[in-house]
Design a protein around this nucleic acid. Structure first.
Lengths: 117, 117
DNA sequence: GCAACATTACCACACCTGTGTCAAAGTTGG
DNA sequence: CCAACTTTGACACAGGTGTGGTAATGTTGC
């Protein structure tokens, strides 16, 4: 059994036990549980915890940022909506009339939102 | 010139003038400036403000979420680092983490609704 | 059986986000 | 010229994020 309990995982990853639970609550790292409910961190999760820490410090992003990126990966509708919003100007072909483009974009958004609800 | 000042933009987009300045500060919509420094919102920006509002309310994302998505688009190194971190997760049994994330999101939603009522 | 660990559920605190409001000072249009 | 607008800056406040604690209770290893 190469799985560590929470305090062992804490010492080898640098996260406090408190933060390991918080990271789990944010949906980023969910360790297995023993029969009695103890968290059991496998080697791969330990590695991911170390990489996560590096990601946060090196790029100055927050846990919620990473959680949102995960949400983008799980929710294609959301990903498409965000991508569309971010690229509206860049994607507009120069020869298309602005008015037409705006109407098109608005229709696209309405179709998208209608599809979700 | 078909550009609106901040209060005109406010009435046609539904954002308060205060929030229009805040959205600009978040790096999402930067209107042009007149010679004396007045913000001038063009039609594309007004449309983007409207769709942004829909994005936020319909998908329950925050301005900082969208700002982070924009940052992902502007910083390929960051995008690759995040994508890489997330896909190691996808290579492993992801259903547990997904469940957890959903519960987390639902709790957040409930807290939000509780705060409203 | 007991010390050392784990669990959840709280309290606490500093900082960030979203949002309103208000003041001082500059700009615009009739 | 003056009313109505704009600018930045600041105070304020609720709720979320990140992080530490403590307490009550269950689990494990020797």
């Amino acid at each position: 059994m190469d799985a560590l309990t929470i305090n062992e995982a804490s010492t080898t990853t640098g996260w406090s036990a408190r933060m390991l639970r918080y990271v789990e609550q944010a949906g980023l790292i969910a360790p297995a549980r023993s029969a009695s409910g103890y968290r059991l961190y496998g080697p791969e999760q330990l590695q991911r915890l170390r990489t996560l820490k590096e990601l946060l410090t090196h790029f100055e992003v927050s846990l919620s940022d990473v959680a949102f990126a995960a949400r983008l990966g799980n929710d294609p509708e959301l990903a498409e909506a965000v991508r569309g919003w971010l690229t509206t100007e860049a994607a507009r072909p120069a020869h298309v009339e602005l008015e037409d483009w705006l109407r098109f974009e608005q229709d696209k958004h309405e179709r998208l939102l209608a599809a979700v609800s």
